[in-house]
Design a protein around this nucleic acid. Structure first.
Lengths: 125, 125
DNA sequence: ATTAAAATTAGAATGATTTTAATTTGAAAG
DNA sequence: CTTTCAAATTAAAATCATTCTAATTTTAAT
């Protein structure tokens, strides 16, 4: 693995916070001042292609990066907050129900996070 | 509903092809030359907000718009082709499994469409 | 030490979408 | 039929995450 590739992978793998490319860049710069943002994008893309990390796109915000291990996500409808959720692997069930061989799936559960629910209640809804 | 709002809704609702804003724009211009692309975006956003249509984002391509009726999607890993698939409503099941109240979910089944599979076979994979 | 391929860099380019500010439209009220 | 005012529309500029380009540097193999 390349000089920056390894470090970037470690940052994403270690993080439970679904960092954006910019956030990975900022963290990497701590150890490697002078690294270019393009390098971060290059490596994130390469790592995704190799299946070593994955990309999580949430409507209207920059792409986020996540460890490869299988899990799904809760997305707050209001603020976009992203949280991991561990559901069993649904591939077989979905394949059977859809009647088509599938390679994988992308499942996001839309909810209201604690903060946003509280904010709503205060406004009296 | 507004002058263009209704037409744009009809275009999206009638289409089974998941058009992009540009494609809606092109179709609308047939009947209404002089309409602005910004108007299409404004109305698509308004209609989404009202729940009368929905937006489908596929990694690396412009957003697509879709009728509101509940259904899920197959997305070709290779070419991005988007196809409807009718699965039963999984909200309750997912809510139970996740242990959190959810408002909705976004499920994409990743597969290889017929064309892409054929292309692969020709190349001998 | 030589080479070639791959990685990195800085900065420009891209392109879908949003924003802005001005103009037009359309419905309700007088 | 006017007046009025909010909402819709327009054209153009702005945004901004991401990709691309071309030049440079690093790496690993020979």
């Amino acid at each position: 693995m390349t000089k920056y590739g390894k470090k970037i992978w470690e940052i994403v793998e270690a993080s439970r916070g679904h960092p954006t490319a910019e956030q990975v860049f900022d963290e990497l710069r701590g150890a490697c001042p002078g690294v270019a943002l393009a390098t971060v994008y290059n490596n994130l893309n390469r790592l995704c292609g190799e299946g070593r990390i994955r990309k999580v796109s949430v409507e209207g915000m920059p792409d986020r990066y996540d460890r490869a291990a299988r899990h799904d996500h809760l997305v707050c409808r209001n603020c976009g907050r992203l949280t991991d959720v561990d559901l069993e692997d649904l591939t077989e069930e979905l394949e059977r129900k859809a009647g088509v061989p599938i390679l994988a799936y992308d499942l996001k559960l839309i909810y209201l996070c604690g903060e946003c629910r509280k904010a709503r209640e205060k406004e009296g809804r």
